[in-house]
Simulated scan of single mutants.
Amino acid sequence: MTIASDPIQNWAAQAQAAAEAKAKKDQTLGIDSFLTLMTAQLRNQDPLKPLEGTEFISQLAQFGTVSGVQGMQTSLETLAASLRSTQTLNGTTMIGRDILASADHFDHTEGGTVRGQIDVPVGTTSLQLRITDSAGVVVREIQLETEDGTQDFTWDGMRTDGTPAESGTYDIEAVATVRGQTGSLEVLMAGRVSSVSLDASGTNLTLNTPTLGQVSMAAVRRVQ
């Protein structure tokens, strides 16, 4: 249902906003007003305690500093608004793109596939991808190549017994043996960007993906 706006109410709101802006502007001391006040001060100074030239210069310098800071603040606010617009525009170019980010869990949709990459170090003799459900049960283990460099992997969404894994959140781990030591390697998961979000400050851009959830732009390792 469409709610029609009241033109009189809108006009009143605009008039009030304009009045507030004018009042704020009227309260601001400009350079002309400052010089007028300084001239009046010189004319009406105490003859026994005349205003020294250094005091006048000091006050003028202080006013110039304050005025300069206010101008700089205005410039910074304009620059910040421009940067927010630029960041939002850059974020929209990510929609529909696939990103790779470090992850130890992901959201799986039954019938879908999951893919990613692992940076395999030199000296790796064994590499296994382990996928576990929310109950801690191992759903699938996949043996991967141990050649050093970037190794791509894909999980077809099937359990070890050949049945499809149901939709839900799963943990993923890359277990490797490197120079006789067994441990975990970082897993980069792929996710397609469906939308982007900008926080209230306009500084942090978040990419929204069905597989990885919300991913900070700073956490993106690769873009495909």
Rank of each mutant, 00 (worst) to 15 (best):
T113E: 02
S126W: 14
L42M: 13
Q73S: 10
L42N: 06
V178F: 13
P164F: 02
Q181F: 15
A21T: 03
L100P: 03
T39S: 12
K49D: 04
S167R: 08
A165Q: 00
D107M: 07
L60N: 01
T125D: 15
V66E: 04
I142E: 04
S67F: 09
Q62M: 08
D152S: 01
V193H: 08
L42R: 10
L127C: 11
S5W: 03
D6R: 10
E186F: 11
M217F: 15
S5N: 04
D46S: 09
G157E: 00
T146N: 11
L144N: 01
A200P: 13
I3H: 05
E77R: 03
G183W: 15
P164K: 01
I95Y: 09
T211D: 02
S67N: 12
V66Y: 10
L89Y: 08
D104F: 11
L37I: 13
D199M: 03
I131C: 01
R130Q: 09
L198R: 07
D107L: 10
T36D: 14
Q14A: 03
T28G: 06
R97V: 07
A12P: 06
V193K: 04
N44P: 04
T124W: 15
Q73C: 10
E20T: 09
A135M: 14
T150F: 12
T88K: 15
Q117N: 10
N204K: 11
S184L: 15
G213P: 05
G111I: 01
R159T: 01
D152L: 02
D199S: 05
V66I: 10
F34I: 07
Q9W: 00
F63K: 14
V120D: 08
D32M: 15
A218R: 06
Q9I: 04
I8A: 12
Y170V: 00
A219R: 05
G116Q: 01
W11R: 11
A19T: 04
A218W: 08
H105F: 06
L212S: 04
A23M: 03
G116R: 01
L129V: 01
A15V: 11
L100D: 01
G116T: 02
L198S: 08
Q16V: 14
Q9H: 02
M38N: 06
R84Y: 08
P210S: 07
T36P: 00
I95A: 03
E55N: 09
A219E: 07
D161G: 10
T36M: 14
L129W: 03
N44A: 06
G136C: 09
I3T: 06
K22S: 07
Q181W: 15
V223S: 06
F63W: 13
E20D: 13
R159H: 08
R115N: 02
D171H: 14
S184E: 14
E186M: 14
I3N: 09
R130Y: 02
G30V: 14
Q9N: 01
G202K: 04
S134T: 12
D32V: 15
A23N: 05
F106S: 00
R192T: 08
Q70K: 13
L42S: 06
G123Y: 15
T92K: 13
Q143Y: 11
R130P: 04
L51K: 00
M1I: 05
T206S: 02
E52K: 05
E77C: 02
D104Y: 10
A17R: 10
A15H: 13
A12V: 09
T88P: 05
